[in-house]
Design a protein around this nucleic acid. Sequence first.
DNA 1: TAGATTGTTAATCGATTAACAATC
DNA 2: TAGATTGTTAATCGATTAACAATC
Lengths: 210, 210
Amino acid sequence: MPLENIPDIVVGRLPRYLRTLTYLESQGKTVVSSQELGDDLGISAAQIRKDLSMFGEFGKQGTGYDIAFLRKQLRKILKVNRTWDVAVVGVGDIGSALARYQGFAHRGFQVRLLFDNNPSKIGHSISGITIQSIDEMETALKEAGIQIAMLAVPIQAAQEITDRLVEAGVKAILNYAPINISVPPHVHVQYIDPAIHLQHMTYYLESPED
Amino acid sequence: MPLENIPDIVVGRLPRYLRTLTYLESQGKTVVSSQELGDDLGISAAQIRKDLSMFGEFGKQGTGYDIAFLRKQLRKILKVNRTWDVAVVGVGDIGSALARYQGFAHRGFQVRLLFDNNPSKIGHSISGITIQSIDEMETALKEAGIQIAMLAVPIQAAQEITDRLVEAGVKAILNYAPINISVPPHVHVQYIDPAIHLQHMTYYLESPED
DNA sequence: TAGATTGTTAATCGATTAACAATC
DNA sequence: TAGATTGTTAATCGATTAACAATC
């Protein structure tokens, strides 16, 4: 029974389901049970069934889920049954790696625009995309109708650039700058900060100094 | 009243508190209330107080928290009041960016070893660290006593390399390969996959095709 | 058919929030 | 002192799990 208001924590698991299904399909599997999928993901079978049931009835009793079918449904639900153009702002080490990353294409994203404020970088290309001046950012974003940006600028610039992205119509920001950014309610932000994850894990490690 | 068993979800918030405190300190602030900290982080004041109270009494009624003091306590709790040596496995675009990333040093981590299986990369250096053959990985990890690895190899290699990392004594893995890896219970894994975050956000975007 | 597995409900579990006495 | 804010308890809220009828 599809609901209208799905908890964000459920939405956040869907991309993981999709990724695992894609992997299973690449391994030649065609059908999977909630139990198997859960084992792969470290999630309970009940939770997977409950999550999916919020969007429809995708499985078959006695059999499980048809992988190709469920993938298709999830891609539709997540709106990645199309390709989203993405901009990368800040073409340092992280920005360049994002521009070159081969993993986006199969998952619904294509890096289209690159921006940097360093004159020595402007005009150069990465993966066939010319780096533009950040002065042209708003114009270029609007012209390309881009809704998604990956932010890889220094901390001090992060909030100002964020404000400009929002002003240019960006609705989703993946922020690599290790700082919280403020955005209006209609704009979505996700954070990637490796040090946060490392520090989460060191809590559990034994430190000689203890 | 410090407890022995802290929920992992609480532990996961501590690095974010620490990061924000460091930022506030860099802005010249010396004291912060749970309310202000919460506003910055998008977390309720009550939750911050509750989380911190699991580890001790760090604040002062009527005043709030001394930033320098609370930072020190959190660094100790997270065991980043020291520097952890880290290995990067797979020196492609992501691995190189990690090797060059300046953001680790201040937060308790130093990249010490780099491994790749591509002969054309072995022997070359990044940030003063020589890339070693992956054949030497176990030996080098053990010799350096490294407990933390960042994994940036292709999907097909991820599980095999993981097994070898575990065998070599690694206890914490930050996995950039877009696949779930299996590890024994004593090994911690965190995942970074930008496409997962992007797909989480596209759920909420309006797609023309809808 | 018998066995397996879904979708869903109810029960449990855990996390967040509200409220306030204590106190700086 | 008066005002502010902590640490903590109890209440609320939400998420996960267990269980099972339905059914492929």
